[in-house]
Design a binder for these strands. Structure first.
Length: 479
RNA sequence: GGCCCCAUCGUCUAAUGGCUUAGGACAUCAGGUUUUCAUCCUGAAAAUCGGGGUUCGAUUCCCCGUGGGGUCACCA
């Protein structure tokens, strides 16, 4: 029934970077559209020039692309309902508002802001819902002319008649509100410009939007929009709501919880697949035990009815775990490519390529990479305590190191291969009275400068014979 | 304050009246594999907010509390 007609949209405000919450909403809209083979539309909400910044708009589009969320119509690619930015649609909005005015479904309100404010405060004090008294609603046309003659301009209010207003949210069920609790609300400013909500409604009508999926902060606004649709004689779309993402402390996710910008996660070494996977698991699940799912898998399964209404908290640990899991699933080639922007200049591509298998299971974020391999390009002086295992003396350690040195020296450049060297050195280790752990610890510390490192022989292979012997020599001098 | 939404392990969630000793994952802890770290494997601990109903039977349905969130502008 909804198949092949679905049209959804995302309307970000370019007053900041793409927020995780916005990305989450975009993702769910996208999944819904793709599941039903519909269209996903991007519309820029740039009605406020004070907030709008071109670079933010570019950044938002770029972040969406990075996440793999593509759009079928938008400001950059156009479409049948262009323009896709609200600042260019003012004339359309006025056309609709004027129509409501002409048909007597809306009226000018000349009340002063001060009067409205005191009314609101009085209502709040009495413990009732503040709403407009409707005092300008019944002015006669003569009275209006009189007022306008004095140069007063009025905001446009929609006439709201009492009665229940209800709609069905696919995941939350039926929601009903009394129109009398809303009152005649403003749809346009006295300079005839539409309020965001009005503009959004008109855009959704014009662009034939069938489902609006957005944050739960809009839940309270739906009745107003339905009233507007009714006044305009248009059929309202399906309204679905997504819970906000909260911080670990339960308050709305914000900068004090860490990064909220998608671009920051990109910069900090997170993979788009992992971030998208994490985001989709917030408020949705495949209903089985799978945790790692690709976008294409989820497109097949996604249903609005399955969206959870609870308020999820952002868990960086789980995101990081997913990221590590995605890193491990990449081929060496893919991972090499991803690692490239995080690789120090001193490491040429050929070397990076060889490092990949050594680090793949050891990094959770791409940013973990440089530190893990830094010892390969820069010598790190070991501590004597690390070099000498517990229960061994400096003398004994020196003997072992010189034994290792002698053995390593024997390898020709042609035989300088990790598996060959490892096999041989294991034999050597077993021929001593040292435990393997201690034997290799000393070796490792001499080479890597610390007790932990990527696989020893793989590292040594990359380090080269000359540098390896050098470092062994230096280590012996410390003892 | 009025109105609206929400409520399962610490966290994300599964179970839409019985198949449940409430399942999985992250995190935590304990083992194992391993020349370090990591990966991997095994195991442990850990939850239905409280109170009333409805029902032969409630995590599941209803009501009341409690808690959290949202919203009430000529802002977005």
């Amino acid at each position: 029934m909804i198949k092949d007609k679905v049209r959804v949209r995302m309307a970000p405000t370019p007053s900041g970077f793409l927020h995780l919450g916005t990305a989450h909403t975009a993702l769910f809209n996208w999944l819904f559209a793709r599941h039903y083979g519909g269209k996903f539309i991007l519309r820029i909400d740039d009605t406020d020039p004070k907030r709008y910044r071109k670079e933010y708009e570019e950044e938002i589009l770029e972040s969406l692309r990075w996440l793999g969320i593509n759009w079928d119509e938008g400001p950059d690619i156009g479409g049948p309902f262009a323009p896709y930015r609200q600042s260019k649609r003012m004339a359309t909005y006025w056309r609709y508002i004027k129509k409501l005015l002409d048909e007597g479904k809306a009226y000018r309100c000349y009340c002063s802001p001060e009067k409205l404010k005191s009314e609101r405060e009085a209502a709040l004090k009495k413990g009732i819902a503040p709403k407009y008294s409707g005092c300008c609603r019944y002015l006669t046309s003569e009275e209006r002319r009189e007022i306008e003659k004095k140069g007063r301009r009025g905001a446009v209010r929609l006439k709201v008649s009492p009665g229940p207003v209800s709609f069905i949210d696919p995941s939350r069920g039926k929601i009903t509100v009394k129109a009398e609790d809303i009152g005649d609300f403003v749809i346009a400013r006295s300079d005839n410009t539409a309020l965001l909500a009005t503009a959004t409604t008109i855009d959704d009508i014009e662009m034939k939007i069938t489902h609006t999926i957005r944050g739960e902060d809009y839940l309270n606004f739906v009745p107003k929009q339905i009233l507007l649709y009714d006044a305009l004689g248009k059929k309202a779309p399906v309204f679905a709501h997504l819970s906000f993402i909260y911080g670990p402390d339960g308050s709305k996710l914000s900068k004090r919880h860490g990064s909220t910008a998608v671009s920051d996660y990109r910069k900090n070494g997170y993979l788009s697949d992992a971030l998208v996977n994490y985001l989709m698991l917030l408020g949705w699940s495949p209903k089985d035990d799978r945790e790692i799912l690709s976008l294409s898998q989820v497109v097949k399964l996604f249903k609005l009815e399955d969206v959870s209404d609870a308020n999820p908290k952002f868990d960086l640990d789980k995101l990081t775990w997913l990221n590590g899991a995605y890193i491990r699933r990449k081929t060496d080639r893919e991972l090499g490519k991803l690692l490239k922007p995080f690789t120090p200049k001193e490491i040429p591509s050929a070397l990076l390529k060889k490092m990949v298998p050594l680090v793949k299971e050891r990094i959770k974020k791409l940013t973990d990479f440089p530190e893990l391999v830094s010892f390969l390009i820069k010598y790190q002086k070991p501590n004597k305590e690390d070099l000498v295992p517990k229960g061994k003396s400096s003398q004994e350690t020196l003997a072992i190191l010189s034994l290792i040195f002698g053995e390593m020296k024997k390898f020709s450049l042609k035989n300088w291969q990790a598996n060959r060297m490892e096999k041989k050195l294991l034999q050597v280790a077993d021929s001593t009275d040292w435990k393997r752990v201690s034997f290799f610890q000393t070796f490792r510390v001499a080479i890597a400068g610390g007790k932990t490192s990527p696989p020893l022989f793989g590292s040594i292979e990359l380090l080269g014979k000359k540098e390896t012997l050098n470092r062994l020599r230096k280590a012996m001098r410390f003892l």
